[in-house]
């Protein structure tokens, strides 16, 4: 491969890592900090992607929108709409066990996928949306940078911003309350914390972060179709990243995103290089099995992940008194 080819690949690789890292940080807010189970990440991801796309693309005869709004409006809109979806789902399931939240989130993700595929007036259906532009292309061109490199810079900036936001939240009293709720809900309630409200806040913030990830994906890829939001890419990989990196630890989320994306994209090269031609059609399922088995091995052998959670000193709620 030529040097420029390698460089281009590296840029694309890092952009994907960045987007996935943002998703993993969003999930960490929900699962890692609060113990809320979202396996409909793909749904929030899709909402963000389509929201930003509809807001920013130029007028199109095929679907609604074409507002031609600037990029920043697009990503803010994406976060707001995803956050609202999070609010809705979180509100419905707030009082219920986390299993119900899991089922509800996968329900919303699958339903959204149906809507995206069927409501052509909104999303142009399976034919997808095109002409989604990369941000600040003119500006980066003036600097002598390609739009792909510019995109990488924007993704990196967003990632840094999100990271500092969630890291700050983790250390703040708010984050400590969340962990206290996760670890001992009854005790947290006993000291007068409004458990449902804290949970909902974390869920909404996490959903909005996922929406941001979706918006960045839309602008990077330039094309959206329902295929991109299958549970495998949108949800499963993000979960494996967070679990592998260490849930509850924001650095772990970053590490997990880089590591799992390396394995996932590396496995593509490996399989195309080693599998006989007759087997080339099997590479897809084999890669999924590889990542799936990896997840199970981590869950069995190192459930705390590579970088386990290191909680700052927790608020001394005390343990719930045991009855004799």
């Amino acid at each position: 491969m030529e040097l420029s080819g390698i460089a281009a690949y590296l840029v694309s690789f890092l952009t994907f890592v960045g987007i996935y890292a943002i998703l993993a940080l969003g999930l960490n807010m929900q699962w890692g900090f609060t113990g809320q189970f979202n396996i409909g990440i793909a749904g929030f991801f899709a909402v963000g992607a389509y929201a930003s796309a509809i807001l920013t693309v130029p007028d199109s005869p095929w679907h609604v929108g074409g507002f031609g709004a600037p990029f920043l409006v697009g990503i803010v809109g994406a976060m707001v709409v995803s956050g609202l979806f999070g609010l809705l789902i979180g509100w419905i399931t707030a009082r219920l066990r986390t299993d119900y939240l899991a089922i509800a989130t996968i329900g919303i993700a699958e339903t959204l996928r149906l809507i995206i595929a069927n409501e052509t007036w909104l999303t142009h259906g399976v034919r997808g949306m095109t002409n989604i532009e990369r941000p600040f292309a003119g500006f980066f061109e003036a600097l002598g940078l390609s739009s792909a490199v510019g995109m990488l810079i924007v993704v990196a900036a967003c990632l840094v911003a999100v990271y500092f936001l969630v890291e700050r939240a983790r250390q703040a009293p708010w984050g400590r309350v969340l962990r206290a709720i996760r670890d001992n809900e009854i005790a947290a309630e006993a000291v007068g914390k409004n458990v449902g409200r804290f949970r909902l806040e974390a869920f909404v913030v996490g959903s909005a972060i996922m929406g941001l990830g979706g918006a960045l994906y839309a602008h990077y890829f330039g094309f959206l179709s329902p295929e991109a939001f299958l549970p495998l890419y949108g949800t499963f990989l993000v979960w494996v990243m967070l679990i592998a990196g260490g849930s509850g630890n924001n650095k772990g989320a970053l590490l997990g995103a880089a590591l799992i994306w390396s394995i996932w994209s590396g496995s593509e090269f490996l399989m195309s290089a080693t599998l006989p031609d007759a087997w080339s059609g099997q590479a897809g399922p084999l890669r999924v099995i590889l990542i799936g088995v990896l997840l199970q091995v981590i869950l069995i052998a190192r459930p705390q992940g590579l970088l386990p959670e290191q909680a700052p000193k927790t608020v001394p709620f005390g343990k719930a008194g045991e009855r004799s």
Binding site: G35, F37, I39, T98, D99, A102, P231, L232, F236, W239, V240, I243, G281, Q282, G284, P285, L286, V288, I289, I291, G292, V293, L295, Q296, L299, P303
Partner: peptide, 25 residues
């Protein structure tokens, strides 16, 4: 028990991929 939930979600994808591997698409 929620860890089992994550595990079973991964298992869903493994089983489906095994079916694809054996019987094709």
């Amino acid at each position: 028990p929620v860890i089992l939930l994550i595990s079973s979600f991964g298992m869903a994808l493994i089983l489906r991929s095994v079916v694809q591997l054996i019987w094709g698409p």
